[in-house]
Design a protein around this nucleic acid. Structure first.
Lengths: 231, 231, 231, 231
DNA sequence: GATGAATGAGAGTTCATTCAT
DNA sequence: AATGAATGAACTCTCATTCAT
């Protein structure tokens, strides 16, 4: 079951999620809203096709069947339309939360597995966008900061969960919760990156299985399924 | 103890290593060699200061106290001088290999720890360059490919090591060696990235300890020396 | 009387005529069309003043009272604007056709003379442009090919005309029609070149007279009208 | 038989011949002479391969297995080395003179044919160089002037010959000698250009035959061989 | 709101020429 | 004489941004 507050945007490490306050007021007319939407959709296509750096605003306008002048009616810059693209994608990148401590071990495993699966699936759907965000984050400090902050929200929660597991004697007490949480989250997001962005193209079931097993092992827990006598 | 052949270039995931064949003939005169070296050094400073994208060739030339024409005497493009920068750094990014299977567990731990420490130290010395490579890899498919190939060299070796550990009954046999090796290597390189590139600024000893412990746990081994009562 | 189909572009040897398909879509607005036209006119002035090689795109833009950016709005390169210059001139380089075989000899002479006169007059009006084309053809294989193809259209027609004159017993049967047609066409175009481009500055009437007479003599015909006692 | 003074450089229209005064003193040492010669030979190869415009002095130096510095020891500029290339070729472009008036008509025909043949053969041997000169003449007024002057030497002689033939009643008196001489010379040189430079690739015997026949016809003479009763 | 022409700073690139060695 | 590194003016080309219609 999902943890409370899981409606907040959050992410495994990459946290591609965007500040929700609007940069500017949305258009009031239906026609304006349609134009804006087609620009955002076009921008996503162009960005994914050419990369953020190599894309040109005129291409986005052309792809949206409008003019460059119209682009500037809705956005001030490339960065701004990229923000809008991320906002549209962000709902799809939400994912279920972590198991609770008081959960039975069997459930802990199941929920963690579900969480990983949801993440991998979402990553797969948005792989090109994730790559894009990767690129933009290396160029623009604002997006880099955004990414770090969002992923911190997630890793902090994971760290707190690890801490309570340790207190309950269910996890290796010698591990630093925060650093461990960062390490495990990174592990998952990079697996996704290699598979979906770099074309390693692993089977999702195997990825879920490996990731979940590694989390369990790393934290000093065991998967009841594979070894029924474990705690 | 280090495995044989550890002199080969290799890297934890990011593997910033560069093809060793020269892109063009090195200058014949001592003066030319000096000029080329100062251009490479200047390029590294400018890249690290401004990023690859935002750097200009004139800035590199100016920083090296030469003219732009001289830059083109030695390099054909920004990409080419970047390659040269990576070549200079590559020796520093070498690291010791993995423990052997027949090693006593205490030694395995020690060597793995030494390997991780060496990697973190090297990453720290070259953190800005690693960030740079991160950026360039998102833009230029050639560098992306280079990075993937180099990291594959390392993860393949790790995968073989995991395989033999599993055969010897020393590691969790339910793990896929290749995917696991990718996951663990990613974990380490991302820890380094967060700490040194994104300013998390953890203590290296803690990082080494956490990373080594997570590897051991994840693979289903134990660290007898450090916490005999754990897991 | 002009031969059928004389509306097709064609040329005496130099055949400065250009493929009619547009290189790119013409501007949609009247303002855009005006700007494009002024760029083409400016390009012609600059090319004729400085030569193709020594001209600079900035000079063309300045001459057209626009910015270099505007130049690139309409043309991709120097070659492309040169093509546009040729297209504008091409209508002026059309010329009447050859006499028909069944024509009375007096008419043959008159039509041939008219044809030569039209060619010389057109050449005179576009002499600088012809010189330009000469230069560009020596540099750019595409324009060289264009020129060869266009002149071939003309010489092929002349060759067929010579052939039918030979069959009718009105021309020297020992001449190879194609080679002869190339030779005679070259003769006329080079006369024009020496006179108008290189500043020999002959009287056009004399040129017309000499050229027509040489064609007649060379083909083994006679000019009954102008000098009944000759040859 | 060759006319007196045929040792002077001269040309059919194109007159690729060069002023004989040296631009600078030739090197005194044997080694210097060898270096200079290899530079001139290399320049010719590079020019013919890349064209004058697209060639680079460094390529010439490299092709000659010397350095760019050495190039400047012998030549001041691209133009100067081009002049040297033309000087080397000029001996090969000499050709026999015109028949004399007092020559028997059979001989006139034979000598004119020999002259044309010699010209075509020489053109064939130096076709690439002729194309080159064509290009350079369109760019550089000095070379253009040189070419005009040299061809004028030839056409003036032809004009005088035509004049004496007219006086002797052996040629059409209504023709302007100078303009006619220019026209006929152009005819021959352009035939050569189309055949050897533009790849029309005609049979030399046919070219000689056509050219000679056209000259005779055009001047109102006849070829005794083809029509024995003619004057 | 929509359009698309106009702008020009800014970047990359070439190569003839100089000159210290 | 020979070398080749150093130079920088001169050029082409890009594209985010403005603004009149």
């Amino acid at each position: 079951m999902s943890s409370p507050g899981s409606g907040r945007p959050e992410g495994h490490d990459t946290g591609s999620l965007v500040d929700e306050r609007q940069v500017r007021a949305l258009p009031v007319t239906a026609r304006g809203q349609r134009t804006r939407e087609s620009l955002v959709a076009a921008a996503r296509r162009v960005f994914e096709r050419d990369g953020f750096i190599n894309s040109r605003l005129t291409d986005i306008a052309t792809e949206a069947h409008t003019s460059i002048g119209t682009f500037y009616t809705y956005f001030d810059s490339k960065d701004e339309v990229f923000t809008a693209v991320l906002q549209v994608a962000q709902d799809d990148m939400l994912h279920p939360g972590l198991p609770r401590v008081e959960e039975a071990p069997e459930n802990i495993a199941g929920v963690l597995e579900a969480s990983n699966r949801a993440y991998f699936e979402a990553y797969r759907r948005n792989a090109q966008l994730m790559v894009l965000l990767e690129q933009v984050a290396t160029i623009n400090p604002d997006f880099r900061r955004l990414r770090v902050e969002r992923s911190r929200l997630f890793t902090d929660r994971v760290a707190r969960w690890i801490g309570s597991m340790q207190e309950a004697g269910l996890a290796d007490r010698s591990l630093d919760p925060l650093m461990t949480s960062r390490a495990l989250a990174s592990m998952v997001s990079r697996l996704a990156y290699y598979s979906f962005a770099l074309g390693e193209d692993w089977d999702v079931d195997s990825m879920v299985d490996t990731a979940t097993r590694l989390w369990f092992n790393a934290l000093g827990m065991t998967l009841p399924a594979s070894s029924p006598e474990s705690a």
